[in-house]
Write a protein that binds this DNA or RNA. Sequence first.
DNA 1: CTGTTAGCGCATTCAA
DNA 2: TTGAATGCGCTAACAG
Lengths: 341, 341
Amino acid sequence: MRPTVHDIAAAAGVSLATVDRVLNQRPGVRHVTREKVETAIRDLGYVRDVAAANLAKGRVYPLTFILPASDNSFMHGLNAEIRAAIARSVAERTDIRIVEVPAFDPQALVRELEMLAAEKPSGVALVATDAPDVRAAVDRLVKDGIPVVTLVSDLTGSLRHHYAGVDNIAAGRTAARLLGRFLGGAKGEIAILAGSMLVRDHRERLEGFAAVMAQEFPALHLLSVLEGRDDPEVAHMLIADALAKNDGIIGIYSLGAGNRGLIRALKEKAVDRALTVIAHELTAHTRAALLDGTIDAILNQDAGHEVRSAIRVLKAKADGLSVIDAQERIRLDIFLKDNLP
Amino acid sequence: MRPTVHDIAAAAGVSLATVDRVLNQRPGVRHVTREKVETAIRDLGYVRDVAAANLAKGRVYPLTFILPASDNSFMHGLNAEIRAAIARSVAERTDIRIVEVPAFDPQALVRELEMLAAEKPSGVALVATDAPDVRAAVDRLVKDGIPVVTLVSDLTGSLRHHYAGVDNIAAGRTAARLLGRFLGGAKGEIAILAGSMLVRDHRERLEGFAAVMAQEFPALHLLSVLEGRDDPEVAHMLIADALAKNDGIIGIYSLGAGNRGLIRALKEKAVDRALTVIAHELTAHTRAALLDGTIDAILNQDAGHEVRSAIRVLKAKADGLSVIDAQERIRLDIFLKDNLP
DNA sequence: CTGTTAGCGCATTCAA
DNA sequence: TTGAATGCGCTAACAG
């Protein structure tokens, strides 16, 4: 039978309350007493029963998710996954709130983070816009003792406890190798469609992509990046235009959202052209395009995994517990038409 | 505040014990009383607090994992992941035991399953050898009310509750498309190295691979399957021999284990040949080979995820709870040298 | 500074 | 067929 607080109390010759005090590092225990209890804990190999503790405390974890108010399938999916987590709240003792802030707007994000500092939730998850002010606001939360997890796009250099998202440099590199290998030594131009160079994840994907292309596929020439602001209309316009003007394009890498527009442009302008296309994020649109051959491969991050992982990590940090690193690693999913979920 | 058993008891005008009886469908309750309680449960929207229930019961979940005693990196990895889960046993209220049985030996597996029927653990996970007797033994366990999960290799047609492993037909198809695209229209022969056609996962991979190859890459001709019994020595011999005898081989698909031997053969016999190679399972050996260019892509199943998933599912089934399907889906990981974990 | 006591939500004797 | 009482492991008043 595993030891309980009673066993420790007996072994240390103190009462339950005192054991509880040292266990939860509360003040009001003489140094020697504390030592005695700590020794007993170590000797008996005590591990606290978190479930019982939570029951006694009636603990719930108020968590806040801050998302950009972007109208694209990926963000809708992320939102849906959080709502699914909300539906499980009772069993998981969470109390989750979703807050939307204008996209690509650091100041709005900062304001929200400052309000949260007052609310003192058990944890905060945010899709970070990469700006110094945001970093400062996040650091402030962390210093106040509130666990913070970045979601989808990281905030390197900040004190955030954890990043729940894919390695975007690796994603870009993978896209490059896939595209290069699929094109098998052909010579030509590659168009690149991004959302915005203001968000870190897109910048990193581009960086990884360009690096591998330059190093391993010199026969392929990268055109300058098209910024579609993750908006299907803008993306459509940009791609249609590029295809019309440039006959040498043989490959496209779409590293942001708004792929609806890309796909429409391809179906209108490129039915008769041999084009190899790699895109990010599995949505209803990209899935259909992969199946009908318009897209050759999709790189994806599992939004459900990201949300569940963020919640697990925030709860663990709130309790000072450790996590299973391998379980929290968000992998880069590669989908061909054969291994779709 | 969410309703508790007390609230139900009050609402139904009965005692806690009676509420508990209907909650756990125990006998000794008049029909009318039962109805009253059930109405109260529904009206108040009661959901049982599983953590509290487990505390009161002092519940632990004795689980048994049955693995083939195969000496390859993948099985070693699987074993290690189970041991990692054992290390977490205290917190997760599990009591996990690993049993090894001779590989590819249905009768040994059946004997073990029959012994388990007597022990009545909370759940059983097994790497299934595909045979009618095994199916019958599994069905027997299920009918006895013991949750059963197949791991890595499934047992279709049996009553097992869940399969924690990848879709191997999809894996084979994906391997074919990757190989075909990487070879970009070249014409030549493809060597296939399997472990044994007696295990379902290998048969399914081959099936998927052959289907896509026949349909989409007619210029590539599949040689007859080499069975390496997941043994590095045998694999080495078979591949070295094939390469020596056949100059037309331009691609290799290794769908089983024992890749150490394959890699050694490639380094000895094929340094001067342009060979595209796809293999299964990420191990220290295949990882190194991917990085140095000997292998072009690795298809993988995350053993850690499989083990954690099997445990979650077995616990849930033992309690009659539902699982999050997306969380329990084991995906096919595709690794290029750029996205290694 | 330390101890006593009463729960958290549920399961389980033992009586009635 | 039903109910009262006790305890699971832990926390948190409230006394001392």
